[in-house]
Design a protein around this nucleic acid. Sequence first.
DNA 1: TGAAGTCTACCTACTAGAAGGTAGACAATG
DNA 2: CATTGTCTACCTTCTAGTAGGTAGACTTCA
Lengths: 195, 195
Amino acid sequence: MSSLVMTSDQILASARNFIVSGGYNGFSYADIAEVVGVRKASIHHHFPSKVDLVRTLVARHRERTEVSMADLESKFPDPLALLQTYAGYWAKCIEDASVPFCVCALLASELPALPPEVAVEVRAYFRSLSSWLTKVMNRGAEQGILKFAGSAELEAETFMATVHGAMLSARANGNPALFDAILTPTVQRLSAKVH
Amino acid sequence: MSSLVMTSDQILASARNFIVSGGYNGFSYADIAEVVGVRKASIHHHFPSKVDLVRTLVARHRERTEVSMADLESKFPDPLALLQTYAGYWAKCIEDASVPFCVCALLASELPALPPEVAVEVRAYFRSLSSWLTKVMNRGAEQGILKFAGSAELEAETFMATVHGAMLSARANGNPALFDAILTPTVQRLSAKVH
DNA sequence: TGAAGTCTACCTACTAGAAGGTAGACAATG
DNA sequence: CATTGTCTACCTTCTAGTAGGTAGACTTCA
């Protein structure tokens, strides 16, 4: 805890950027060392192994997401506004290229080849996000603000799939705006209001 | 062309399996050598470099997909049946674990870190698939068989995003059936028939 | 027809460099 | 003075890729 910006946080941030761009096997300790400006051995001091590093990263990502979601719910009681804000958050991250992909979505695609300790955390993130979305869908249906044909669980999974798929399409097309182009009508379609 | 099953085809098939499970950097020539039962040097004989191997794999995947799609169109003139068959094809591949993920979807997620020669081919696959889907959406709307609010292009991109996102959700949840659970209502929603 | 040359597919053995990781010395600092 | 963070210097294993060679099938042509 010497400098203002802690080295361990810089290491985590750099690891996240690398993973978001090329996955678990797409970077090395040497890559991070160069970005952060320390030696490889110093990274091992903070995170003894690559598994430790990525497990910590994913666990922290889930915790922060859970806090953000609780935060969002207190600010926007309306379930439709909640979905709009969630989609809008990612639209902004993708369009300003600050976080062009979800780190857990990328790791989930490599799940069968991931070290088990990391895989566990990635699955936990997906469970956490889908249970939050299910809650939102349920509340929206009860309040007559959202409408959908199937169960809240299925609608939550479908919404999540569309979000992650839209990230992929935006990336594959080299067109960040495509994310919002897909998400805005998708959220709108869930609205119970005539449109 | 000595044996019945060509070694180069076995190499490509093995590479596809590895990529589908862990991405471009998730396997080595040694891994393939072990599966196919030849030495590393023999793989270099067929595919001088890893870039050659994966570029060939993706290019062939696109060509075969294009042929399959043309084939499908001649068998099923109905645009709705076309979408159902396409979704059903993937549902089968995922559920019997023969091809649990689209090789191009996985590579697209790693696009920024991919060798340029491979990245070009992956983008070509996405363009090819989305232009086919756009064609189907357009025809469906003209014939009054499909109905959707926005443009055919956007509907095609949204459908593609849902397919790829559903693959990811099925993988993250360790539940192959989730793919079909998401896709069946998604296709149904596009039907112009009352339901 | 059979010898010479060529081609394909594979092999063993090797390389340089990158991977993740370790041991131990040296500062700073509370 | 003990803890924390960093360093240099190293290790082992794996990486893609190369060098050079062998066995056998196919061609060419005297």
